[in-house]
Simulated assay, not measured.
Amino acid sequence: MRQVAGLLLAAGQGARLGTPKALVEYRGERLVDRGVRLLHEGGCHPVIVVLGAATLQVRGAVAVVNPDWRTGMGSSLRVGLAALPPEAEAVVVALVDQPFVEPAAVRALIDSGAPVAVATYGGRPRNPVLIARGHVERVAAMANGDVGARPFLTAYPELVTEVEVPGDPRDIDTPEDLTTLTGED
């Protein structure tokens, strides 16, 4: 069994939401804590969380701060990938604003044995993604602005294994999304 780290991108300010998404609570749990739990329960160790707009304590994870978080997800992905421990053979990258992704999705990516794997829901590729150590440098080099691994995945489709997973990939970007997804006002 290969050692797979988890990487939770949680640095954004949530401009459209009005608050950093990491701080949003759903059923009494902050989204950042939910994301850490997702990765742990899916089989990742250690879990690294990239913070930026909000600086907070995160239990069960190594927190790193992206000083350039305002430039977008690309810089957060680079900071997180740079923090991977040397023993990590791969990393599963997840986003803090997808609270309905299930640990089984993470486990399916790991169990695929693929060097690059993308979770799909009903045949549509979404997050999380798994990247083997040998591709981390190229992924980091191509991550810019408000995109993460997408440029790498698009440039090297022959490397990508799509893995159909259970769960719901919807994300929370606006107060309306939060109300719709949670049923709470």
Results as ranks from 00 to 15, higher is better:
residue 1 M to H: 03
residue 1 M to G: 09
residue 2 R to W: 11
residue 3 Q to N: 08
residue 8 L to I: 09
residue 9 L to K: 12
residue 9 L to M: 13
residue 12 G to P: 08
residue 15 A to W: 11
residue 17 L to M: 13
residue 21 K to L: 15
residue 23 L to D: 15
residue 25 E to D: 15
residue 25 E to W: 03
residue 25 E to C: 15
residue 27 R to S: 14
residue 28 G to T: 13
residue 30 R to L: 13
residue 31 L to S: 13
residue 31 L to T: 08
residue 35 G to L: 13
residue 36 V to S: 08
residue 37 R to V: 07
residue 38 L to M: 01
residue 39 L to S: 04
residue 42 G to Q: 07
residue 42 G to W: 12
residue 43 G to R: 11
residue 47 V to T: 12
residue 49 V to R: 05
residue 50 V to T: 13
residue 50 V to S: 13
residue 52 G to A: 12
residue 53 A to D: 11
residue 55 T to N: 05
residue 56 L to E: 14
residue 57 Q to K: 13
residue 59 R to A: 14
residue 60 G to Y: 13
residue 64 V to K: 10
residue 66 N to G: 11
residue 68 D to H: 14
residue 69 W to E: 10
residue 70 R to I: 10
residue 73 M to S: 11
residue 73 M to Q: 11
residue 76 S to L: 06
residue 77 L to H: 11
residue 81 L to V: 09
residue 81 L to Q: 01
residue 83 A to Q: 08
residue 85 P to Y: 01
residue 85 P to W: 07
residue 85 P to C: 03
residue 85 P to Q: 09
residue 86 P to M: 03
residue 89 E to A: 12
residue 91 V to S: 11
residue 92 V to N: 09
residue 95 L to G: 08
residue 96 V to P: 08
residue 97 D to I: 02
residue 98 Q to Y: 04
residue 99 P to C: 03
residue 100 F to V: 02
residue 102 E to Y: 03
residue 104 A to P: 00
residue 105 A to E: 03
residue 106 V to D: 09
residue 107 R to T: 04
residue 108 A to P: 02
residue 109 L to H: 03
residue 110 I to M: 08
residue 110 I to A: 06
residue 114 A to G: 02
residue 115 P to C: 01
residue 118 V to D: 04
residue 122 G to P: 08
residue 124 R to A: 09
residue 124 R to P: 01
residue 128 P to Y: 03
residue 130 L to P: 03
residue 130 L to W: 08
residue 131 I to E: 06
residue 132 A to G: 14
residue 133 R to G: 02
residue 134 G to C: 08
residue 135 H to A: 11
residue 138 R to M: 12
residue 139 V to K: 12
residue 141 A to M: 14
residue 142 M to H: 12
residue 142 M to F: 09
residue 149 A to E: 15
residue 151 P to Y: 14
residue 152 F to C: 09
residue 152 F to D: 10
residue 155 A to L: 15
residue 158 E to F: 07
residue 159 L to G: 06
residue 160 V to P: 05
residue 160 V to N: 11
residue 161 T to E: 06
residue 166 P to Y: 03
residue 166 P to I: 00
residue 167 G to L: 04
residue 167 G to E: 08
residue 168 D to R: 07
residue 171 D to M: 13
residue 172 I to W: 01
residue 174 T to C: 00
residue 176 E to Q: 15
residue 176 E to F: 00
residue 176 E to G: 00
residue 177 D to Q: 00
residue 178 L to N: 00
residue 178 L to C: 00
residue 179 T to P: 00
residue 179 T to G: 00
residue 180 T to E: 12
